[in-house]
Amino acid sequence: MPIKTIVVGTDLGESGHRAMRLAIATARATSATLWLVHASEMGLDHSWSDLPVAARSAAQALRERLKGRFENSLQELERERKACEDVGVSCQTSCEEGRPWETILRTAVSVNADLIAVGDPVGAIGLPERLLGSTAERVLRQAPCSVLVSCGRLRADYTGARIAVGVDFSAHGLEAVRWGRDVAKAIDGDVSLLHVVPHPITESRMPTEWPKVLEGLASKARPRLEQLVVSEGLKPSTTVQVLDGPIGKTLCNAAASINADLVFVGCRGQGRLRGMMLGSASQYCLRYSPVPVLAVRP
């Protein structure tokens, strides 16, 4: 999958630095250009002309403070840009007033991005974030391209990395397989294809006939996975597994058990409410994956 332009959303803190580490590694492997995007606090361009006279001095003081923070952000972005170019990665920067996810999405559309990289969403634990989703989750739901999220353990160098790909045989899942193939080729890595037979049953309530049902489903899924290895041109050393359980949790556990360095999953971009009610493998992986997640869009 050709990657020419990567938009990196950064808060200029630890989360943003993690996103940058992944984006730089990807850009070096693909010769892509980075667009480093930061959203400044809203209010800098507001005139506040409708405020009472007595409040305007306070408003002006706030505006000066926001202006100072904006200038500091520009300086930090410039340092990040130079750091990228020091390691041979072309980088552009953008600092705009607005909400982070809207700024990231707007930039991705304007530069025709092939990939968006964002920080770890686990820190979003307040009530608004639980209801509406973190920046990473909001970007994921509306992104025009695939999204790389820097959750879990990061490697300093992804050469030879193992990629766990969740496969449900949908168009989204097949695209995740192709991304896994292409990325593995770029980094001389290995791919493991994982198919999960979904069920909400716990071990204490599992019907006695379930093992036979699972065996029948697995006997059908395994040949399909093996056929994908051939039809999509993956290396003969590609491994396949058929598992059962809640999809997101099972994928994360399997990634840990095989010591995967990246998890690739297909993303349908379903809404927050639907995801809360029905569950979403990609949303679960964003919060609980032991390693970075690439949510793939066709």
Rank of each mutant, 00 (worst) to 15 (best):
P2S: 13
I3W: 14
K4N: 09
G9W: 02
T10M: 07
T10K: 04
D11V: 00
G13W: 02
G13D: 12
S15L: 11
M20Y: 07
R21Y: 02
I24D: 01
A25T: 10
A29G: 05
A32E: 14
L34N: 01
A39L: 07
A39P: 06
E41K: 05
G43Y: 04
S49R: 10
A54H: 10
A58L: 11
A58P: 05
A58W: 08
A61F: 09
L62M: 14
R65L: 15
L66H: 07
G68A: 14
F70V: 02
N72H: 06
N72Q: 07
K82P: 02
A83S: 15
V87R: 05
G88H: 15
Q92S: 15
S94C: 12
S94P: 05
S94Q: 11
C95G: 01
E96K: 09
E97D: 03
R99P: 06
P100L: 03
P100N: 05
T103V: 15
L105A: 04
A108H: 03
V109P: 03
V109Q: 13
S110P: 09
V111Q: 00
A113W: 11
D114C: 10
D114N: 11
A117M: 11
G123Y: 00
G123C: 04
I125S: 07
L127M: 11
S134N: 01
T135K: 02
V139Y: 06
R141C: 00
Q142H: 11
S146T: 13
L148K: 01
L154F: 03
T159G: 15
A161T: 10
R162D: 11
A164M: 15
D168V: 10
A171K: 02
G173D: 00
L174K: 06
L174A: 01
R181F: 14
R181W: 12
D182M: 09
G189Q: 04
D190V: 12
V191H: 10
P200V: 09
I201T: 02
T202N: 13
E203I: 08
E203P: 10
S204N: 12
T208S: 14
T208H: 13
E209C: 09
K212Y: 06
L214G: 07
Q227E: 10
L228N: 05
L228P: 04
L228F: 08
V230G: 03
G233A: 01
T238P: 15
T239H: 14
V240G: 09
L243C: 06
I247T: 14
G248W: 00
K249G: 00
T250V: 13
T250R: 15
N253A: 07
S257D: 15
I258E: 15
F264D: 12
R268C: 05
G269S: 04
L273D: 05
R274W: 02
G275Y: 06
M277Q: 05
Q283N: 06
L286F: 00
L286C: 08
Y288N: 00
S289W: 10
V293M: 02
A295L: 09
A295V: 03
R297S: 13
